[in-house]
Design a protein around this nucleic acid. Sequence first.
DNA 1: CGCCATGTTGATTTCTATCAAATTGAGTGG
DNA 2: CCACTCAATTTGATAGAAATCAACATGGCG
Lengths: 247, 247
Amino acid sequence: MNCLDEARPLGAHAGCSHHVKGDDCRLCLIRPLSVCSALEPDEWASLEKLSTDIRFEERETLVREADDVVSLYTITAGVVRLVRTLHDGRRQLTGFALPGDFLGLSLERTWTFSIEAITPVTACRFGRASLMEYVDQKPHFLMRLHEMATHELSLAQDHMVLLGRLTAEEKLAAFLMEIRRRWARIEGHASDHIPLPMGRQDIADYLGLTIETVSRTINQMQRAHQLVIVPDGVRLLNIGYFEHLCP
Amino acid sequence: MNCLDEARPLGAHAGCSHHVKGDDCRLCLIRPLSVCSALEPDEWASLEKLSTDIRFEERETLVREADDVVSLYTITAGVVRLVRTLHDGRRQLTGFALPGDFLGLSLERTWTFSIEAITPVTACRFGRASLMEYVDQKPHFLMRLHEMATHELSLAQDHMVLLGRLTAEEKLAAFLMEIRRRWARIEGHASDHIPLPMGRQDIADYLGLTIETVSRTINQMQRAHQLVIVPDGVRLLNIGYFEHLCP
DNA sequence: CGCCATGTTGATTTCTATCAAATTGAGTGG
DNA sequence: CCACTCAATTTGATAGAAATCAACATGGCG
């Protein structure tokens, strides 16, 4: 089955294996989206030797904040959340990682956030030490990592604007348009149907809101006929409304 | 006059030239704090050839959001703000840059924020193209840029937590402790006297608050004898209170 | 000395959080 | 297959923190 097939059942995002055959970069469907896109075909082989496929179950924790960085990951299927937690339990999600996203850009010794599987996840796992060696030998690979890191930084600034200055309605609109754009990149085309594998609490913690406000706002949008809530996410009825709301 | 002298008059931060003599990296007092710390003495000379000193007046705009990146800067004296503005005028500051801070880590083609001088500023200016060439020749310099970028990313995540989950009082406490730590790094020792060259509106736009809330909160802290407002900033009376507030 | 930007204070509103309860729905076992 | 359970979500009522609206104070500077 081709994961990119539009005819797949609703909710297939989480379960479908973008990585068709384990440990073969030549067959990796998310390669063009990933850090590997910086490499030539003959380099996939050398990188492949450093990597192993690994699977995590729903709710499993991949890494904990302040843990030593032992492995780095490229998500090949499923969705994870990046979480910062305060001592009193308040949470802020700093992002979601989707297929193609690389975790461990910083090359630092310890993680600055926890990574938790929202759905079953498959990932391409690299040992930190061996990837560091690889980086030393391939300056253009380091340049690619750096570009990805600074792009992340720009997205982080976008998110600061969202958290600091947008209303609940604007936050939700911006969130839906962000997730839509990211699925579009993975699937190769934009769709008004937006799967939301994360729960309302995760959305709230990403947007700096409460679960009640997220629920109320989405349902207001539905009552205003701007979207329809479907079992696995939402379907946007009026893209213009959302585009107008996100600045 | 030695800028690091504790006896300097209040407010001297902004005006004092950390870069004692123009265009000589050997005499640059902020070098150990800057990107140049990644280089060996014999490399300062080669980097120096790429740089020129430049001065900006208070309120002057160094670069505008979406401008092409022509030059990159290391701030050598003074303070600038990094600003994102929404079409309707809402502002979010994504950071302040102090002496030693490098602007242009991303090596991308366009700026993703405006940079505005809060005080008179001196900076070490690099042409983008020539620094890119330099980066190509010195992988360890690129590694240093990458480390700085990922550290920025970690700080950006801290700021997301602040914007999304902290109360006004906690935001102010975290802000004051952050600025204190950054002055301490520049001056070589921590002080309870915290110069705040940025105005209340800048603090508000950094913390996702209004100017009134910033003013009220600082004055509440003063009434509670946790700090004293002084002409150029504040003096903390009870560090424990602030440490306790910032998670 | 008075002007204008900046900051402070007060009164009121509003948005979102909080508290509380009802509803839905996926998974389980009889 | 259906009742049951428990978590997730929705909805309602109320409270509260910060925004907004509106003066007023301060202070640097010509």
